[in-house]
Design a protein around this nucleic acid. Sequence first.
DNA 1: CTGTGTGAAGGCCTTCACAGCC
DNA 2: GGCTGTGAAGGCCTTCACACAG
Lengths: 221, 221
Amino acid sequence: MSSSKQKTTAVPHEVPAVVVSRLSLYLRELQHLVRAGRATVSSSQLATLFGFTDAQVRKDLAYFGHFGHPGIGYRCTELIAEIRRILGTDRQWIVTMVGVGNMGRALLRYKGFAAQGFRVVAAFDRESRVVGSQIEGIPVYDVAQLGDVVRAQRIQLGMITVPAIQAQQIADDLVAAGILGIVNFAPVALSLPESISLVGVDLTTELEQLAFSVANRLGSR
Amino acid sequence: MSSSKQKTTAVPHEVPAVVVSRLSLYLRELQHLVRAGRATVSSSQLATLFGFTDAQVRKDLAYFGHFGHPGIGYRCTELIAEIRRILGTDRQWIVTMVGVGNMGRALLRYKGFAAQGFRVVAAFDRESRVVGSQIEGIPVYDVAQLGDVVRAQRIQLGMITVPAIQAQQIADDLVAAGILGIVNFAPVALSLPESISLVGVDLTTELEQLAFSVANRLGSR
DNA sequence: CTGTGTGAAGGCCTTCACAGCC
DNA sequence: GGCTGTGAAGGCCTTCACACAG
């Protein structure tokens, strides 16, 4: 606030992935806090929600700028705006879903994505039964049209919910069509060019973490 | 193999959570490899699938025992059995799903859980429309019966797919009924006793990681 | 020669502790 | 008094590099 040099403009250098994932969590809880009428939070209050330390919360945020107010804490709406800008969710992302089975359909019907800036504009499947239909207003195309539609609609992100055995081929098609990043729900490791961002989500894996934790009485995390 | 002291019996000491999560990934790919007819893998081949280093794969496994064969690598079926034992998925886990909306239904229909030792025996919802029905042969009860059913069926793990605002109450009910661990799909931080294992899965959070990665051109991970 | 298991080294993240500010 | 931002310290995980085994 004192000097003219605000360094809150861009990602400063290399940020640990784990810091970014915590930022998402902070954002989520901040939004809950605002809805509950809270104007400010301290780092220790935020930390308590997750079992982190207050220093960690401050350090995480300090990677990107000076968002806090000594003696006050962080103003919720202000910090929400900052984190959204950092994550890149202050703008809209154009998304597609490939695979309209149980999981794909469930995700298409989920309202939470749109609320955070992710607009799903097209879905794909190979089953002629669903091709041509709409789910929550989102048209379902044949996978054969994937490249054309992705290019025409300038789709940036793809979510893959096809069976594991088809996932690599779909990923290759998405990359060929110019996609920038992929969330892979199929239980298989994908091989992609370095330039493409990849996040893997495997629900079985998550249950296995839980089983291990219970079997070895590690308690909460 | 030389001495009588095999230390492959239990979790030796404190294992980093990230090691356990990689074990799940190894298991998944090993199962793919077996299906493809492969008998053995080396640490470097396994590592390449994920972009890890070979040393990391070996170190991860070395936490739990000596599973490799110098000059050969790891025998796939052997290592699968070891990892399942380590994760605790060589036995069956009794699981419940609380919330039978889009996400809950999709997960109930997913066949992958059963294949890894997770048996979903009951689901719960508050909507009288679905209570009393079955999904994939799994009965849906009213949430009011949650405690009774969890105790009667000795349910060990719970998956929560209710709206965020209801999630803490459901979690408390599950804990009161003696549950051992929870996977929380609701986009909210839960507060639980230390003795209860907790894994959080937030799909919006995953998309945000991807957005950040793309926005900052970090490429694959 | 191929490939594992592992001390040692290195690096990265977390925690500590406190100066500074409201 | 309350709370942030941050160097310094500490700890934990990853990588290196090599002895050893088949």
